[in-house]
């Protein structure tokens, strides 16, 4: 399958702050790619650079074979984009929003599909967008995006601000849309369950750096939590590739390790712990541990644990 999105050392600075750092990303045609990261990790900025809404400081991005900063209107017509918060003209009715959007897409616009999606969401075309709930606005935005029959669908945190039930409905609809062959979807989220349900490949951005880019199952299986218990004050933890984070907690050291192997086990033994516990994560825990970074222990609890 050809790559629909490729980036080469894509970097973005806002002032002196690096928001996206040397991002190398390849997304093949037909992939449903979940871009994960905490708030401020650089997900939205990455998506904006892919669509030419933000200029990269360094590096480049190609979307559907074209430089992202210079997408031609014909290429843009093949890409549907749901921006964060589903911005639409709030004074418009749903019908007016469709009337505004349709002329830009010519033959690509699928009116029967648009009507069917509205019907599915039980939305009347005469309703004014500002009178809709956030969930309904998201549904209208999705209907407008899908009716253009896009080859590439880019969704920036599409379930942000939606309650659990609406989010579930929205994702169910998304899954149905995905089932069209050959369609590539890139969506960002900070909600792991959303990604787990939809994506077949994930990327995890941590402070602008793409720390993970692999199939969803591989990520889940490769992240482990390790507890090293000591009968004395824990020694200093030397740095080691694959050890994402470590922090002392009383007479224990808690580590998060990616791709746990013999090198890690040897390192643990060299510290002479009295017990080593290796635990599996579900995807949500793996993501949290992977992206949390340095964790602070509340001093009073650490003291209590040490005395226990």
């Amino acid at each position: 399958m050809p790559d629909v999105i490729t980036t080469d050392r894509l970097t973005k600075y806002y002032g002196s702050q690096c928001v996206v750092d040397s991002l190398n990303l390849r997304i093949a045609q037909g992939t449903v790619y979940g871009l994960l990261g905490r708030n401020g990790a650089g997900k939205s900025t990455t998506i904006k650079m892919l669509l030419g809404m933000a200029q990269p400081s360094y590096g480049r991005a190609e979307v559907l074979g074209e430089e992202a900063t210079q997408l031609r209107p014909e290429t843009r017509a093949r890409i549907a984009y749901l921006a964060e918060g589903h911005p639409l003209y709030r004074w418009m009715t749903i019908r007016q929003a469709a009337d505004f959007t349709r002329p830009f897409y010519g033959d690509r616009w699928n009116q029967p599909l648009f009507d069917r999606i509205l019907d599915h969401f039980e939305l009347l075309p005469s309703r004014r967008i500002r009178r809709l709930s956030r969930g309904q606005q998201a549904q209208v935005a999705l209907a407008l995006a899908v009716a253009t029959d896009p080859e590439l669908l880019i969704l920036d945190d599409p379930t942000l601000g939606l309650d659990t039930v609406v989010r579930r409905d929205f994702l169910e609809s998304l899954i149905q849309i995905i089932q069209r062959r050959g369609r590539t979807i890139l969506f960002s989220s900070h909600i792991l369950n959303d990604v787990e349900r939809v994506a077949d490949r994930i990327g995890v951005l941590v402070e602008g750096v793409l720390r993970v880019d692999c199939p969803t199952d591989v990520f889940r299986q490769s992240v482990r939590k390790v507890h090293l218990a000591f009968d004395r004050e824990p020694p200093a933890m030397p740095s080691c590739p694959g050890v994402v984070s470590h922090h002392p907690n009383g007479r224990k050291i808690e580590l998060v390790v990616v791709g746990l192997g013999d090198a890690h086990r040897e390192l643990f033994e060299s510290l002479r712990p009295c017990r080593v516990d290796v635990m599996e994560f579900n995807l949500e825990d793996a993501f949290i541990e992977f992206t949390r970074g340095r964790r602070k222990t509340v001093p009073i609890f650490a003291e209590e644990e040490a005395h226990a």
Binding site: K48, L51, R76, I79, A83, G85, P87, L88, Y89
Partner: peptide, 11 residues
Amino acid sequence: QGTYPFLFHRP
């Protein structure tokens, strides 16, 4: 309204 991305993504 935050509609610049919506507007500028029109082909």
